[in-house]
Design a protein around this nucleic acid. Sequence first.
DNA 1: AATATCTTTGATCGATTAGTTAAACTATAA
DNA 2: TTATAGTTTAACTAATCGATCAAAGATATT
Lengths: 211, 211
Amino acid sequence: MVKVKTTDLQTQEKIFKAASEIFEEKGFAAARMQEIADRAGINKALLHYYFRSKELLFEAVFQVLLKKMFEKILSVFMMDISFEKKIKLYYEEHINILIRNPNLPLFLLNEISHNPGLGKGIRETLRYAEMRDVIYRKHAKEIRKYGIRKGELPQLMVTIVSMAIFPFAARNVMKMMMEQLGDTKSFNTFMQARKEFASDFVIAALKNRKK
Amino acid sequence: MVKVKTTDLQTQEKIFKAASEIFEEKGFAAARMQEIADRAGINKALLHYYFRSKELLFEAVFQVLLKKMFEKILSVFMMDISFEKKIKLYYEEHINILIRNPNLPLFLLNEISHNPGLGKGIRETLRYAEMRDVIYRKHAKEIRKYGIRKGELPQLMVTIVSMAIFPFAARNVMKMMMEQLGDTKSFNTFMQARKEFASDFVIAALKNRKK
DNA sequence: AATATCTTTGATCGATTAGTTAAACTATAA
DNA sequence: TTATAGTTTAACTAATCGATCAAAGATATT
């Protein structure tokens, strides 16, 4: 039997995958290098060989998870489609991503709040100014039609994303609630239904705003 | 000079206050007993004298902070006023509480998600079934008028609370955004404006729902 | 085959941390 | 004053954790 040697790339990927999972589940402070090594199926010293320290390993993982969260969203908001279609597509795409990575919101919000030094990577990934400019340029008429003043656009943006992100951050509380209320539907079923509910809700609100 | 002896109650309160602050800021895993002792101005061994372990101290603090988050909200939703007035009052009261305790949402969501054993206290404090029954009983007609089906009520509830809670959980990200966008208003000013924006948004959406 | 370089491991180190202990200190009451 | 119970402290312990190191193993180069 020929023993196939795992190359360094494979090892690095194994470490990265394990570290992503552990950090996402437990956060930086509660994550243990030993547990990451165990899940990757390697020795603990090898972690320090590939990534010098826990901090560096974390930062590498953090940047990738940050991109996983925001890249698709950014691309949706850059698209050349109507504002209503954009909202529908946003919920469809973002909720799909979050169903596959349900721990992402709480992990990111938490680490950003505890480690202000992570700010640089955020600015580069989540390009707010660019997004706002695109929205102003492409949807100025629609937004004015809806009675949204210029200064209220941040309020609207926060509202839209919170409807997709918050349920994942509050996922365990929601599961307890649903269980106690005798709701037999799963959390994922709830989030599937939320795609349409959120789209309709936002569009209905915009069509009925006081001008 | 007469040295006034601090009574045990004063000491216990000092410890509790310091522990609340540290746990709220850093979370259970990153909080240090030494730091709590320092902030309380006492010896570390005294922490273990009043609260046997870090876990017990944390659980005591957690229950109080959980109540601080949900007690007022529960009382608002129990009141005998119209649904629209209830929504307005909810945002007014809850956002006021959160402005005074901005770290509360992320702290609670995070600890609940990392420690499922905390579930008991949550069920007793956040009495979902009771809240849902009250809403069904008092507002059945309004909710039907708005085109909200019975099964969609959880969607509506999550939407309402997320608009108040999420911005605090994402507070640091929002601060970065506002800074980069050249927004000179403070986060608290944003949240003050959000009281009216959120009320209007929810009411507008409800009045315009497809039946 | 011989050498050099890269990868992986077991063992260990030093620092940090929650928790303990024994003794000192204070207040109260007899 | 003395005895008792409650409070506070400095010093210490045991365990955990991130990090290091020396040596073994694997791969590539000549």
